[in-house]
Nucleic acid binder design. Structure first.
Lengths: 295, 295
DNA sequence: GGACGTTACGAACGCCGTAAATATA
DNA sequence: TATATTTACGGCGTTCGTAACGTCC
């Protein structure tokens, strides 16, 4: 279970080729072959089929572990590096698209900030590995409940904002007149799946608690990051969408109905590496930013 | 960040001695010294003070990472081993003391089971590392919310039971006559801290959301695992206790008042390694157990 | 001076690259 | 036959142990 071997293994699995993996890693094919052989011998299991190169069931399983493991190693190294490194001049903030709440925009320092838009599930990793100095993630949760984030490293999450959730429907929709909607009434509707810009459907299925894979069928999948586009698509009849209430307003042809059950909110959180050396480093622009965000 | 080096590092830190760590690990002092030197060179930071041997601030931080990392490695190996190994004849179940709900006891197969009582936070690790085939954990959560468990490995958690929570008071207590109690009324009371047998106080402080370290002061700390002992201690005036309602009843001198706010329940969950090879292995006694627990 | 950690050095081992062998489409 | 992985083998770097050396109580 040497990390070197694991890194080689995931690369081979990703590229589906020993030789391409070797090129990418700067090894010879031979070395890669030996790495995989060593790993298989160590675990006592075949991990890859050759020709074509693809993971076996056990190999699939190892991939899940290896990804988390390598990420954690990088996170640990980055975290320790922060002890030695001088605070950087430019502040990098990783944010999921819907996390750019007005409060956040107001709190951002006027200069020297890089804002990096990422998918929701890549934000914690970015903060953990030091790729970003701070993160902003959004998601769905019960009121005043923290978001459920993968714990790749010791990160501190604090609440930035919570807004009600609303269902977006095209103007002519039979449910468009209601003053509030329940999720259970909408299980059989057609939905927009917009994992980056909206609330992912599997999240709804999980919250709803029904049998996996049933309900919340997808009408159209939108892979962009613009929530206004989602509202417009919904107005055009391509499916229902669940979004934080504020962003749904003012689009012609779209009707917005608050979600009343279950009680869920759209929540934005600030993600920080838990402070080394007693917050000392929090001076500078990061301190300025977090203070404005909290105060 | 070689796991070997990390392992020796955590051992040295734990034993506060290079030579004792060397004995425990089967190395010479020299090798251990070289390991630490290599790790410090790699990270560019001193990790330990010598004479006395103790972690530096950076070293403290590395300990947090290293523990999680080594645990994950063991978990991954154990998980992969399950692919190769034949199902074991005897089923080992790790359980936290309060997780032994009547439904659990009823579902346990009549023979061939080892039940291992562990602290709450050690159960997930035991399942992940294959030390146990299944786990039962209890904790406090909002109704129908899953417990918040450290994710050491891909584990599946399913609800086994939820019961209301009750505050235990001695018969003469001023609040003993109430029909329901709020947590906010009890912040300033004296509490029993029974991390193994009851609800840990820091959990209450976290739920209550007040400033860390304030409120829920400890009257007496009980390190055993018997919830009835907690009730008896509370009856004897050694502090309030929060327990699942059913176990609080029938102890003379103790009064039980339901907790009405915040809405929290005592929840028990079954923890399983997510099934390799499509549930195939779930036949046998583990399948029998889980089926009875769910059905 | 004694217990403990460090440094020097040599031997064994492991790991990678070259090159030949082998398997598959 | 061409492409891709495996195996054989040799050199080089790494890691461990022995032993000598510092160093702090």
């Amino acid at each position: 279970m040497d990390p070197h071997l694991l890194r080689t293994y995931v690369t081979v699995a990703r590229l589906a080729s020993f030789s391409r993996a070797a090129r990418e890693l700067g090894y010879t094919q031979s070395a890669v072959s030996q790495h995989i052989a060593a790993l298989e011998a160590d675990l006592g299991l075949p991990l890859l089929t050759r020709r074509p190169v693809a993971p076996t069931p056990a190999g699939e399983r190892l991939l899940e572990h290896a990804g988390a493991l390598l990420l954690r190693i990088d996170a640990a190294r980055a975290d320790l590096d922060r002890f030695a490194a001088a605070p950087r001049a430019t502040l990098t903030v990783a944010a999921s698209p819907l996390a750019l709440h007005p409060r956040v925009l107001a709190a951002l320092p006027a200069t020297g900030v890089t804002l990096r838009a990422l998918d929701r599930d890549r934000v914690p990793a970015a903060v953990a590995t030091g790729e970003a100095d701070a993160g902003l993630v959004d998601g769905v949760a019960a009121p005043s409940d923290p978001l459920r984030l993968p714990d790749v490293a010791p990160l501190a999450a604090t609440r930035v904002a919570e807004e009600p959730l609303a269902v977006v429907l095209p103007a002519g929709h039979p449910l468009a007149g209601r003053s509030g909607l329940r999720l259970t009434d909408l299980v059989d509707a057609r939905w927009l799946d917009a994992p980056a810009a909206g609330v992912a459907l599997d999240r709804l299925r999980a919250v709803h608690g029904g049998p996996a894979g049933r309900g919340f069928r997808t009408a159209l999948r939108y892979e962009g990051a613009d929530p206004r586009a989602v509202v417009a698509l919904s107005a055009a009849g391509h499916g229902l969408a669940l979004l934080p209430h504020p962003v749904t307003e003012g689009v012609p042809g779209a009707v917005t109905v608050p979600l009343v059950s279950p009680r869920l909110v759209h929540r934005t959180e600030l993600l920080l590496p838990t402070a080394p050396a007693g917050q000392a480093e929090r001076g500078g622009r990061l301190g300025e930013f977090t203070h404005r965000l909290r105060g």
